[in-house]
């Protein structure tokens, strides 16, 4: 009979090995930027543009919908509830703390994980299974340069831009909600702008960069880790998606603790 402690130990060791491999993968991917050849930059640039089109441009509709509906619901409900205790002026603070600082980056990142993270894992896993990654290495083309860096850079830029978009749409959605809930638009804007600081904008952008990095790296890592064949692709997609979601929440919590939000 196997000892439960030994089983926990083995599981922990496996998990730590995966974390170590992911950290090494991320470090090597970023370090490979230095060795990207001039000719390769043009090719990688085209792949980056394609990634931006898929992740940022084609994701705009979903982000606008999520942000608009969420902010409308939160603000119209909050105005009614806060109105009962005479604290309607807290609506700006609520908007900034809950939506701009927390929900905006998290929901945007989750939407990008669902759209692009899954696609990245599936695509790179297919590349691996079909022998394309090996062929690239055989030709002297670094898979980090051709496959990973453009996706990483694309996700970092796309998530950051989409987080800003989410927050702008949320502020507009809140304005509409306030206007239809017996609160003047001017008063709403006044409370929001008095609560919003430069630090909020910077922290939100940093969250976008970090979450974009997670979505660019973890799904790529999982996709390129496939070894056994096509049946492993769905498992890799699940690992990439679940892992990214978990990391996004963990880093959100770390931000709250580190910034004393």
């Amino acid at each position: 009979m196997k000892s439960p402690i030994a089983a926990i130990g083995r599981g922990t060791a496996r998990w730590l090995a995966r974390v170590g491999a992911l950290a090494r993968f991320g470090f090597e991917a970023i370090a490979s930027l230095r060795s990207l050849p001039g000719a390769g930059r043009r090719v990688a640039g085209r792949i980056l543009l394609n990634q931006l089109r898929f992740t940022a441009l084609q994701g705009v509709g979903l982000i606008v919908l999520l942000s608009g509906v969420l902010s409308f619901l939160v603000i119209s409900t909050a105005i009614r509830q806060l109105g009962r205790v005479g604290a309607v002026d807290l609506i700006g603070n609520l908007m900034v703390v809950v939506i701009v600082r927390q929900l905006g980056p998290i929901l945007t990142a989750l939407a990008v994980v669902g759209r692009s993270g899954t696609a990245i894992t599936a695509e790179l896993a297919t590349n691996t299974v079909l022998g394309e990654v090996r062929a690239l290495e055989g030709m002297g083309i670094d898979p980090y340069h051709y496959l990973v860096l453009p996706r990483l850079a694309g996700c970092v830029v796309a998530v950051t831009v989409l987080v800003v978009l989410f927050d702008v749409v949320a502020l507009c959605g809140g304005f509409v909600a306030a206007s239809t809930s017996n609160m003047s638009g001017g008063r709403y804007l006044g409370t929001v702008l008095s609560s919003l600081t430069t630090q909020d904008v910077i922290v939100t952008a940093i969250k976008g960069l970090v979450f974009g990095g997670i979505i660019g790296l973890l799904p790529s890592f999982q996709g390129l880790s496939v070894e056994q064949g096509p049946t492993e692709i769905p498992q890799a997609v699940i690992r990439g998606t679940v892992g990214s979601i978990a990391l996004i929440f963990v880093f959100s919590a770390l931000f709250v603790v580190a910034l004393n939000e």
């Binding site: 297919t126 590349n127 079909l130 022998g131 394309e132 090996r134 062929a135 690239l136 290495e137 055989g138 030709m139 002297g140």
Partner: peptide, 16 residues
């Protein structure tokens, strides 16, 4: 170094 050598992998390895 591999750029000095031509390589045709089994199963062609073409990018889809």
């Amino acid at each position: 170094f591999r750029r000095q050598v031509g390589y045709l992998p089994a199963g062609d390895g073409l990018l889809q």
